[in-house]
C-alpha cells in the first residue's frame, strides 16, 4: 500500500437528511460517514437505502474518504445498496461475532466483482459496542483482511448495554477500550486511541474540548477521530496534525541519529534529551505522518477548488450538458 490513510476527522450524518448531506463535502472532514443505522428512523430505512448510490460521490467533491454505516440486523439489503464506487468503507455496528464479519466480507467481495469496484477496496470497520463484542474482540478483529483499523468498547451503545451513565467523571469504559486496543496492536492493526478526559456536558459540538482531546490522543499515539457535528472537524484536523515545531524537532532528532549511526554510535544526547533508535523511529513516524497529513490537506483543497470551479462554470453556462 505504502500510502498512509489519513482520517483525523469524520462527520457522521443520517443519509436521509438532505441538508446535511448536500453540505457535507464543504466541511473539510477527512471522512464522511453516511448513516443507515441509528440516526435513520425505521420507517425511512428503505428510502435511505435507495439514495446511497447517488449520495456517495458527494463526499468525493471535497476529497473525503467515504463510508456507510449499516445495520447489523439487515446487512444484506444495506450492502446491496451501498457497495458502489466510490465507497471506501463499511461500518458494521454492534459486532458480536467473527461470523458476522465473515458474512459481510463475502457479500462485499461478490458486490465488488459485480460492480467494478477494485477488489479489496472496501474496508470493514467492525464496531464494538456491546459487552458481547468486547468478549470476542480478538476473534472479530482477526476475522477479515478488510479490517485495517480496530477500536471500540465505549460510547452510547456501550453505556446502554452496561447500564452506566455516559458522563461520570471517570473512565467507565477503560477495560473494553483496553481490550480492543490490545487486540488491534496484537494483530498489527491501527488502534483507536481515546485518552480519557472528564466530560460533563456531553456536547457533540464543543470545539475547544475536542481540540484538547485530539492533541492528547495524538501524543498517546492516536491518529484518528470522528464526530457528529461540523464544529469538531477543524479542531480534530488541527489537533491530530503535528505542529511545525514538533516536525522541526523530529527532523533534528532524525538527522542527529543518522549521523550517530553512521559513526558507529547507538545513543547520544541532543539538547539534554537521550536519542536512540527508538527515539529516531518515533521521529521518523512523526515526519511520515506530518507529510501524509499535508498531502491529505492539499488533496482536499484541490478537490474543493475543482468542484467550486465546476459549479461556477455550470452557473455561467447553464446550457452545458
Amino acid at each position: 500500500m505504502g500510502k498512509r490513510r489519513v482520517v483525523r476527522s469524520g462527520l457522521m450524518m443520517p443519509i436521509n437528511s438532505k441538508r446535511f448531506v448536500a453540505a457535507s463535502w464543504t466541511r473539510n472532514a477527512d471522512s464522511l460517514d453516511y448513516d443507515l443505522e441509528d440516526s435513520v428512523p425505521q420507517a425511512q430505512k428503505a428510502y435511505a437505502r435507495s439514495i446511497v448510490r447517488e449520495t456517495l460521490p458527494i463526499a468525493k467533491l471535497g476529497g473525503a474518504r467515504v463510508s456507510v454505516r449499516i445495520n447489523c440486523a439487515t446487512p444484506e439489503p444495506d450492502l446491496e445498496a451501498s457497495v458502489w464506487p466510490p465507497l471506501e468503507m463499511i461500518s458494521h455496528t454492534k459486532t458480536e461475532s467473527p461470523d458476522q464479519i465473515r458474512h459481510i466480507d463475502a457479500l462485499i467481495t461478490r458486490l465488488e466483482r459485480q460492480r467494478g469496484v477494485r477488489p479489496g477496496a472496501v474496508e470493514i470497520n467492525a464496531m464494538i459496542e456491546t459487552a458481547q463484542g468486547i468478549a470476542h474482540c480478538y476473534e472479530i478483529a482477526a476475522s477479515s483482511p478488510r479490517i485495517r483499523h480496530f477500536s471500540g468498547g465505549g460510547g452510547y451503545d456501550m453505556s446502554l448495554d452496561l447500564g452506566v451513565e455516559m458522563f461520570v467523571g471517570f473512565d467507565q469504559f477503560f477495560y473494553g477500550k483496553g481490550e480492543c486496543e490490545l487486540a488491534a496492536r496484537a494483530l498489527g492493526l491501527e488502534p483507536g486511541i481515546s485518552v480519557f478526559m472528564p466530560d460533563v456536558s456531553g456536547s457533540v459540538m464543543d470545539s475547544e474540548a475536542t481540540y484538547a482531546r485530539a492533541v492528547a490522543n495524538r501524543k498517546a499515539g492516536g491518529r484518528s477521530g470522528g464526530g457528529l457535528h461540523p464544529n469538531v472537524v477543524e479542531p480534530q484536523n488541527r489537533g491530530l496534525t503535528p505542529p511545525p515545531e514538533e516536525v522541526e524537532e523530529a527532523r533534528q532528532v532524525l538527522a542527529f541519529f543518522r549521523e550517530l549511526d553512521a559513526t558507529g554510535g547507538a545513543q547520544g544526547a541532543l539538547d539534554g534529551k537521550t536519542v536512540d533508535r527508538y527515539e529516531a523511529a518515533r521521529a521518523e513516524e512523526l515526519l511520515e505522518w506530518a507529510a501524509a497529513c499535508a498531502e491529505k490537506d492539499s488533496y482536499k483543497a484541490r478537490m474543493r477548488e475543482q468542484t467550486l470551479a465546476h459549479q461556477k462554470s455550470e452557473q455561467s453556462n447553464p446550457q452545458a450538458p
Partner: peptide, 19 residues
C-alpha cells in the same frame, strides 16, 4: 422523519432512546 434529534448540545438517536 429524523432519528437524530438535538437536545441541549447532545444528540439523541436510537441508543440514547433505548437507554
Amino acid at each position: 422523519g429524523s432519528a437524530s434529534v438535538p437536545m441541549n448540545g447532545r444528540m439523541l438517536d436510537v441508543p440514547v432512546d433505548e437507554r
